[in-house]
Amino acid sequence: LLVIAAGIALVNSHEMALLDDRRSAQDYFLGTVFALAAVFAWTWYPLRNSRWLQQRPALASGTWAIAQGLATLPLALLGMAAAGLYFRAHGGFDFPLGADAGRYVGLMLLLGFCASWLGTLLWNRASRLLPAALVGQLIVFETLAAFAYAFILRGALPGSTALIGIALLVGGVILGVRAFRGN
């Protein structure tokens, strides 16, 4: 875990050097609060989900993934309604489906299937097969994906500090897996 923390610190030091001076200190404070809340949620979820699934060996991972998706659908609809109210007040987006509705719906269906349902199905399967403490460490790959998206969006390669941090993140997970395997 210390290796993972060092990796996150290095990558974030690289990102902090790229901060946008046009943003206020309040923006960064709120962003930090939301990020910490997300870390709490993504620490709690894999541990709780793993324990819950291990207590119910008869429940299929796919069934649980579908149940989770159906339970979150009303929340997604509420979020979409809130976004609609926001965009109506602030403009800037052709709500609810954008300028190209077919493309938007197709992309949302693809994301819903791949990221939400398939991702949850595979995560539930991993939660059943691996110890909860190890599953929690594997969430680091979501952090790595976020960094990859940021670099792609910027159209730039990560600097040496970020690359060392990424290597430490991956190395920390490998060390965690080896510790659980006893090697």
Rank of each mutant, 00 (worst) to 15 (best):
L70E: 05
I66N: 00
F87G: 00
A67N: 04
H90A: 02
A132E: 14
S127K: 01
R88G: 05
G98K: 12
A132Y: 02
Q68P: 01
Q55N: 14
L110Q: 15
P74Y: 00
Q54K: 15
G119K: 00
L97Y: 03
L70Q: 09
W64Y: 15
L122R: 09
L75P: 10
W123C: 06
V105L: 15
P57L: 08
A101H: 08
Y86H: 10
Q55P: 11
G102V: 00
T63M: 11
H90M: 03
L138A: 06
L134V: 02
L107Y: 01
W123D: 08
A81Y: 09
H90K: 03
L73D: 00
T120K: 00
W64H: 14
L121Q: 09
R125F: 00
G98N: 12
Y104F: 15
S127L: 04
R88I: 00
P57S: 09
G92C: 08
S61L: 01
I66T: 09
L129F: 03
S116Q: 13
D100K: 14
P131D: 03
A82H: 03
G102A: 15
V105C: 14
W123L: 13
A133M: 05
G62V: 05
G119H: 01
L77D: 08
A115C: 12
S116A: 12
T63Y: 05
A99D: 09
G92Y: 01
A65C: 13
A133H: 11
A58K: 13
A65M: 09
G112Q: 04
L118D: 05
G119A: 11
A60T: 03
A67F: 00
C114R: 03
I66C: 06
F93T: 05
N124R: 13
L97C: 10
A71Y: 06
V135C: 13
A83P: 08
L121Y: 13
M108P: 02
D94Y: 03
L111T: 05
P131C: 09
G69Y: 00
A82F: 05
G136V: 01
T72M: 10
R125P: 01
G98V: 09
Q54P: 07
L110V: 15
W123H: 12
A115H: 12
D100E: 13
A81L: 15
Q55C: 06
T72N: 10
V135D: 07
A76R: 01
A83Y: 12
H90F: 03
C114H: 07
P131V: 04
L85V: 06
L122Q: 10
M80N: 02
Q55R: 15
G119C: 06
G79W: 03
G62D: 06
A132C: 10
L70V: 11
L118K: 08
L73F: 03
A81K: 12
P96G: 02
A76F: 05
S116P: 08
F113P: 08
P131N: 03
L110S: 15
L78S: 06
A101G: 07
L121E: 02
H90S: 02
G136F: 00
P96C: 02
T72L: 10
N124M: 08
T63P: 09
G62W: 07
N124T: 10
T72D: 07
N124C: 11
G106N: 14
G92E: 03
G91P: 14
A132G: 11
